[in-house]
Design a protein around this nucleic acid. Structure first.
Lengths: 243, 243
DNA sequence: ATATATCAACCTGTATGACAGATTTAACAA
DNA sequence: TTGTTAAATCTGTCATACAGGTTGATATAT
């Protein structure tokens, strides 16, 4: 089992086992291979296997019985909240969520361009300034970043957009994972580039240019997707297959 | 830390930590004690602590950063199921939801055009046929209609899209609300028109034409929005208050 | 005085070996 | 054939060691 950049082996194994279960390789009630067998299958230590299984157990996917084995649980009725089996440190989870976010926020930007009120314009400008200020002072920008995106959703004057964004929450772009491959100067370039993208979005909204707003937001979030995907590609280029 | 009968020490520690976080002992962003400290606090081995933290991490409560520590995540808004203050008799509520759906499903159609597998093509064609069959036999088309949209979401091969649609799904458009103002012949025209729109979507997806798929889905759902808005106008013309 | 580099201390991630307790399977006796 | 016991196999926990990453203090350069 090959290591994926920015991701622990526990997460890699956890996700692989989760996928095997969801793909039906192990039906509900079936017994997983023993820990000893899994250490060989995945070529990792027993510690990694145990921690991965602890994670699956916490999510209710498996049940471990001492002496007997680890068994796949009958899935609980999924009447609850969606997006609850996400591990925000998994790159693939982030890319998936980002694709969904891109769909929603692209349209939100266009609706905001059509519908925002003068008061909402003011909130947008203040939120943009707050991100910039955080960036310049070297403070974490995640909160200010999310507040700007939420202000755009609010400017649609359709509460469902803000409701969706609130549901997903601000844990969507861990900043470190995106900046991790660079020297500090590149990270600064990255922050400046993000800020330029934010400015283009807000500018198009203020101009009531719905198509430009849609395109600017798409560019911004496709850029984030691209940066995440490059993490995966970097790992592949280093000769590590991503099975 | 005392062992509880029938429960592993991992589970005991995991629950204790979860409770501490939820009780506010550690605020979002705060750092938990180190693993070494927690082994002392709970009088268990580091293995138990690590497995407990792996469980909390899988549930999104904490994030571990190598060398820095384990940090409490900002909770995703856990106010329960979103979209709960909707009154489905209110046309404006349906329009709001439809706008959000339009954002997501427009992008889903484009991704499905890029990514669908031959097996998923087969599912799409079958789902399209099922809607047509239901329409011809005068049966309700709502279920078949939803199944088609879900098949498209599945063909994105990003589970978040299907997850979103499943969440929204029970709130799908009640057909009666759209048909209620018409004679039977008009209702038939309406159904035929919807079917043509469905065919255009599936056709673009099978053709791998992402832009056409996006446009066909947008047209389809914008059409639904338009039809809902005309209900608003009709009601206003008849002097009926809409609250 | 300020900025930068270095290093030690501390942290999480992983591997390994050992032992405890529970379950399952195989062997043996009645 | 059935019941009992032992052996094998399994998960749960502990301890130790090393690797790699982060942080803060200290030394050095400007």
């Amino acid at each position: 089992m090959q290591k994926i950049a920015g991701q622990t082996m526990v997460q890699t194994v956890q996700e692989a086992l989760r996928r095997q279960i969801q793909d039906g390789q192990y039906e509900p009630g079936a017994r997983l291979p023993s820990e000893a067998q899994l250490t060989q299958d995945f070529d990792v230590s027993r510690t990694v296997i145990r921690e991965a299984i602890a994670a699956l157990r916490a999510d209710g996917l498996v049940e471990a019985r001492q002496g007997a084995g680890v068994f796949v649980q009958v899935p609980a009725e999924t009447t609850g909240l969606p997006f609850q089996n996400l591990d925000f440190q998994l790159i693939s989870s982030m890319v998936e969520l980002l694709e969904l976010r891109t769909a929603v926020e692209t349209e939100a930007a266009a609706l905001a361009a059509q519908r925002r009120s003068p008061a909402q314009e003011e909130v947008l400008i203040a939120a943009l300034g707050a991100v910039q200020q955080a960036a310049e002072s070297g403070a974490p920008t995640m909160e200010a970043d999310f507040a700007l995106h939420l202000a755009i959703a609010n400017a649609t004057n359709n509460p469902r957009f803000a409701e969706f964004l609130t549901m997903i929450g601000p844990n969507v772009i861990p900043r470190r994972a995106l900046a991790d491959s660079s020297a500090e100067s590149v990270s600064q370039d990255y922050i400046l580039g993000i800020q330029a993208e934010h400015e283009a979005i807000v500018s198009a909204i203020l101009d009531r240019d719905e198509d430009a707003a849609r395109e600017a937001m798409r560019t911004h979030l496709k850029g984030s997707q691209k940066r995440y995907r490059s993490l995966l590609r970097d790992a592949a280029r280093k000769g590590m297959p991503l099975s």
